[in-house]
Simulated scan of single mutants.
Amino acid sequence: MSFRLAACAEMIYGELPLVERVQRIHGQGFEVELWDTRNRDIPALAATGARFSSMSGYFGGSLIDPDSADRVVESAEKLIPTALELGVERMVVHPAELGDGGVSVRPLHRSTGQMWLTGLRTLERLGRLGERHGVVFALENLNTVLDHPGIPLARAKDTLALVSAADHPHVRMMLDLYHAQIGEGNLIELVRGAQPWIGEIQVADVPGRFEPGTGEVNYSAVAKALAGVGYSGVIGLEAAASGGSGVAAGDKALSAFRDAFTVEVAQQQN
């Protein structure tokens, strides 16, 4: 069994211009994940013929802050035309506003009931927006230990609770297993419990945030667990190549990624 595999064009083949990265990823049979699409050559990206699985779905405000949640929805609406031009399926949002390097714009280390309610209401609004335009908004979990300190409701169990409470077909979870491994662990039970709400999965090994096989995570076991619960959606490599930014290193990283998430039928049945 093979999943739909994608690669994040922002993190691999770093020596190439973005359009060439997309062309190389697409040429090897992978779908493409993008981050911020503002100030990008969207027609050139569309002309590559690549299938774009996800992109950043907002550029301002905090989903859980009543004073700035409107900005999340407003910025998401402004990005809809780009998503439609590229054929993007999922627009990614986060529990709070991220600045440069993924740092929290307003660090907070405790969640409140108001944050929960605001997050839920904002996701419901995004669900209605997505339904009107035929896209899904995917709430991504983050780790607050290493990469994104000061972001409330960022753990996978929190984002899963918000998405399931919103209970809208155009609101799903971007389940990032790299972040979950750092912050929570127990990945196989996590994917089993989250399966009904997953829109897309992102992976990278820990430590280092490189391709599978370079760290501690047994991604082959995770792949079998995903196959076992019937997941057949997108799994995206949001990782740098362990060998560097060159083309050969990127090719090797994508090959290792493909190998980790190719599950034999006999293995699946066991």
Rank of each mutant, 00 (worst) to 15 (best):
A260N: 03
L226V: 07
E238A: 07
K78E: 15
I42E: 10
T82S: 05
G150V: 05
I64L: 13
R4T: 14
D100W: 08
L129V: 13
D67K: 12
L190Q: 13
W197F: 15
T159R: 11
L120K: 02
V32F: 09
S104M: 06
S2V: 10
A194H: 04
E189W: 12
E15L: 05
A156K: 05
R121P: 01
L187K: 06
P149N: 02
T262P: 05
F261W: 05
S56N: 12
R51H: 11
E97Y: 05
G215F: 07
A225Q: 08
L162V: 04
A46R: 15
H26R: 14
L5V: 01
G101D: 11
D41N: 13
L126H: 01
Q202D: 08
A7W: 03
I151K: 03
Y13S: 01
M11D: 06
A156Y: 15
P169F: 07
V163A: 01
L129E: 07
T122K: 02
A225L: 09
I151Y: 02
E189G: 12
V19Y: 00
V105D: 10
R192E: 14
A156G: 08
Y219C: 00
G87L: 13
A256P: 03
N39G: 03
G61W: 01
G213V: 09
E140Y: 03
L190W: 07
V92S: 02
R121C: 07
R172G: 07
G127V: 02
A83P: 04
A47W: 14
A161E: 14
G233W: 11
A204W: 04
E15T: 10
R132K: 15
D205W: 00
V103S: 08
